[in-house]
Computed example of a mutant assay.
Amino acid sequence: MSEHPQADPSKAVNPQERYSKLTMGVCPDQWGVWFPMDDKQIPWEKALDEMAEAGFSVMETGPFGYFPKDPDRLAEEMGKRGFRVVAGTGWGILHKAEAWPETERFFREIGQTHAAVGAQFVVHLPPMYRDEKTWAYTDDRELSTQAWNLYITNANKLGRIMKQDYGLTMVLHPHGDSHIETPEEIARVFEATDPEYVSFCLDTGHIVYGGGDPIELAKRYPERIGYVHIKAMDPVLVKRAHDEDWPFGKAVADGVSVAPPAGLPSMPDLIEALAELDKELYVVTEQDMYPIAEPGQPLRIATETRKFLAEHGLGQV
């Protein structure tokens, strides 16, 4: 990975100022939550209580429907635990014409709820071509030129709707087993989408999983980075997953997503690279670990992760 960037001596004098534009947050993925409803997931009330206990105060709400959809109820539940909501999240198919009406409807529902509670972002998670639970193929692994062009057209359209109608910035999210995974695919997205309406979620773990370097990507495309998911992957398991063509769900079940300081990227180096961008960024902690192996595991890991990241400058919560 990248070497530690040289800090500006004038900034090093006041470390708090250097990192002050980076705001740490949390989301349900840090608690192993992938779905709105699932009997293997922790109840949302308990997760929310534990997120507050772990020391977080900034929230990305994760799979829409896990927390209450009603904006008044959502604001009440977040408020009484001291949380500020900054983003919502949703899956949406962009590369199939017949899927667009449902994608638009779903994201308008997300947009309406999250605009009402003062959020600023909506994270678009790309559909995966292998099912997260059964690991069976559900879509083509490679998009045709026609499907790719529609993907870009609808990404721009959805971003425009989110911004113009709800005041939310849409950030596209790379993901294992999706059509936005490798450095080449990410670059292709940057080249084709309209930066006025489509920003990018620098998910550090998924970028590593896709064979990329999030530090180099942040340096190369600083203007496109609008939001961050900060997490790490075990490079040995990443290599094995690709060598043996594992589904992403199997890789997660086998422990590919790890808590820092383990894994890649190097978190101190990454935080320095984010500080060098000199822009306001929400940096949301995650660790893919569905299903949870043991009760209490997410709270312990999240607390330790928050403290470790804070030791390296990511301390604004």
Rank of each mutant, 00 (worst) to 15 (best):
A218W: 12
P174R: 01
R220W: 02
E272A: 13
I301P: 08
G205R: 06
E98F: 15
D131F: 02
Q120K: 15
V258I: 12
V33E: 07
T113W: 15
E272V: 03
T305L: 04
A52G: 04
E280N: 07
F190C: 05
P247R: 12
D243P: 13
R105Q: 12
K157Q: 13
E132T: 01
T303L: 08
F121R: 09
M78L: 13
Y282V: 07
L74Q: 11
T145H: 12
Y290E: 03
L22F: 06
T193P: 13
D38C: 10
P183D: 00
P63C: 11
W246N: 08
F67C: 03
P222W: 06
R73E: 15
P298F: 08
E185P: 12
T285I: 14
E60L: 13
Q16H: 02
L94C: 03
D278F: 04
A241T: 02
V258C: 09
A87V: 11
V13K: 14
Y66K: 14
R306C: 06
W100C: 13
V284A: 05
F35R: 08
L172K: 01
M289K: 10
R108T: 07
K96E: 14
E98L: 14
D140K: 13
V236R: 05
G62S: 09
V258M: 07
V238M: 10
E60P: 05
G90P: 04
R141W: 05
E286R: 14
G210D: 05
T193N: 08
V317I: 05
E17V: 04
S178I: 00
G249I: 10
E104Y: 03
P291L: 02
D203P: 10
I230R: 04
K250A: 11
N154T: 02
E3L: 15
P127M: 01
R84A: 06
E50Y: 09
I152F: 13
Q6I: 15
Y66C: 12
G159H: 07
K11Y: 11
T305H: 09
I110D: 10
E294C: 05
F83A: 01
G92E: 03
D72S: 12
K163H: 15
P268M: 01
D254H: 08
G32M: 02
A310Q: 05
V86D: 03
G82L: 04
I110P: 10
G211K: 09
F308R: 04
S20Q: 10
W246L: 14
E223Q: 14
N149Y: 06
